[in-house]
Nucleic acid binder design. Structure first.
Lengths: 112, 112
DNA sequence: TTTATAATTAATCTTTTACTTAACTATCTT
DNA sequence: AAGATAGTTAAGTAAAAGATTAATTATAAA
């Protein structure tokens, strides 16, 4: 069945809030670990390990410059999340809209 | 800082492929556990435990009918995923488009 | 060349996750 | 009432995830 190993799974990678934060920080552009560390309450090894997870999931790439390591976002794998959301959202929307309709009937017309 | 406990986190809940599959199955409508089990290679307790995770994340609700338990999708918490994707996708798109541009320059014009 | 800096890797520990088997609860059928 | 059915809860275990401290690598500065 060839399932992708958990440690390369993008759903898994974004499951931890610390890693989502890292991705968000990297939207500012390529940054050295030291910069990431500033906005981040964790020891250097913990940070490094989270970055490794992101790297294995293909979400970041690393480049060395002097003694710094610069990380940049490579967002392509996030497409898988986006696709999953998109392919199911159609259903949710109907579902949630139906709930909205129900609530409007029940409580009056908050948002005609 | 009031972080939501991991066992109620929707990102965590959808991180496991088995749970994503359950959500997808439930798009067909409310179903008893036995129906879910058919499309699902797992022992009853394993299935039950995955359903519990989904329930704690607010993604499904359970209703008893005779000796069956019917589960239905309550997709509202998935909005958090959708919002996260939406709020970052703007950035990815630029990033990926830029890469596309780069590739076009480099390899000729696959998709003017 | 020694020392400092930036960050990772290694080793270890704790906690959480996922799964399993066994026992249990509730309902339905006979 | 005695099974059978549907599913959960409990208890135990193994593996994975996350964090920590200590050791290591590579580069830069003194």
């Amino acid at each position: 069945m060839n399932r992708r190993p958990a440690h390369e799974d993008v759903f898994q990678a974004i499951a931890h809030p610390a890693r989502r934060k890292l991705l968000e920080l990297l939207e500012k552009g390529e940054l050295p670990v030291g910069e990431l560390a500033k906005d981040f309450h964790a020891t250097p090894p913990a940070l490094s390990q989270h970055l490794t997870v992101l790297k294995k999931a293909g979400l970041v790439e690393e480049r060395r410059q002097g003694r710094q390591r610069l990380y940049r976002l490579t967002p392509e794998p996030l497409q898988e999340i986006s696709d999953w959301v998109a392919s199911h959202k159609a259903y949710w929307v109907v579902k949630l809209a139906a709930l909205g309709g129900y609530l409007r009937q029940k409580h009056g017309n908050p948002k005609t």
